[in-house]
């Protein structure tokens, strides 16, 4: 593990660079293929509406994959992630247009832990609504 961030240099409250992740219908089709999750609520509007959703929604695991990039881009080595957990609180609704949706992710150091690790608390929102809750990662620093 080779983090480019030093444990000594961060404090509780240190903010990680925020990022925005666009997601269109094409993104979801590609993620379905790569992940093997072909649930039609992620690509078929008719099906999504039939089961009571407002429209096609992103895979929760797609949102989870994007949110941790704020941490892995910060430390450089994705292998430095020791723990990562989220709660799926609200779906990311993806309309059938050229713009789709955007997932906005911020993160900040919430605790300095043993063994050169820190806990990072993440927030992920889309269309102004929180889409992940309890989104936390423990990452080992240099």
């Amino acid at each position: 593990m080779t983090s480019k961030i030093s444990w000594a240099d961060v404090e509780v409250g240190t903010e990680l660079p925020a990022q925005s992740f666009p997601v269109t219908r094409a993104t979801l089709v590609r993620y379905a293929g790569a992940s093997g999750d072909f649930n039609p609520i992620h690509w078929n509007e008719r099906f999504a509406k039939d089961v009571g959703l407002p429209d096609v929604i992103a895979h929760g695991m797609f949102t989870m994959a994007e949110a941790i990039r704020v941490v892995t881009d910060w430390v450089g080595d994705p292998g430095a992630v020791v723990e990562y957990g989220v709660r799926f609180t609200r779906p990311v609704v993806v309309p059938d247009d050229d713009r789709g949706a955007v997932i906005e992710v911020t993160g900040k150091v919430a605790a300095k832990l043993d063994d050169r690790t820190v806990r990072v608390d993440l927030t992920a929102t889309s269309a102004g609504q929180k889409v992940l809750g309890m989104s936390r990662a423990v990452v080992r620093l240099a």
Binding site: M1, T2, F21, T27, R30, Y31, G33, A34, S35, M61, F62, M64, A65, E66, I68, R69, T72, D73, G76, D77, P78, G79, V81, Y84
Partner: peptide, 29 residues
């Protein structure tokens, strides 16, 4: 590619080795 993540540790074995991994690693999820 599906998550749009260009971290070289996922695709370039040499980059992964430079970080101390024996081969390319997978994204956390």
């Amino acid at each position: 590619e599906a998550i749009g993540d260009t971290n070289p540790a996922y695709t370039d074995a040499e980059a992964a080795k430079a970080l101390g991994h024996p081969d390319v690693i997978a994204p956390p999820t």
